[in-house]
Amino acid sequence: MIRQSPVTDAAFVFAGYLVVVGGVALYAVTLRRRVAKAAARARAIRAYAAGPDDAEPAVTERRAP
């Protein structure tokens, strides 16, 4: 008998929603982590610039976190 795709509509819909919502959520969570990391580094640099101690700066060059 001629048969069509056995995958149901619900599976397609679920997969599509999962990809989009999951993708955005994953990006958002990663972004928050990147921001937190960069903020900590900026604070460390400011502390170094202001402080009298001659410790090495945390960062001397821009890197993508």
Partner: peptide, 21 residues
Amino acid sequence: AWLVWQRTRLEGLLDTAVTRD
């Protein structure tokens, strides 16, 4: 809008880390 706001902040932090040094 929220993601771009956060991502712009990140870009600013990265630039600051270079210029302030």
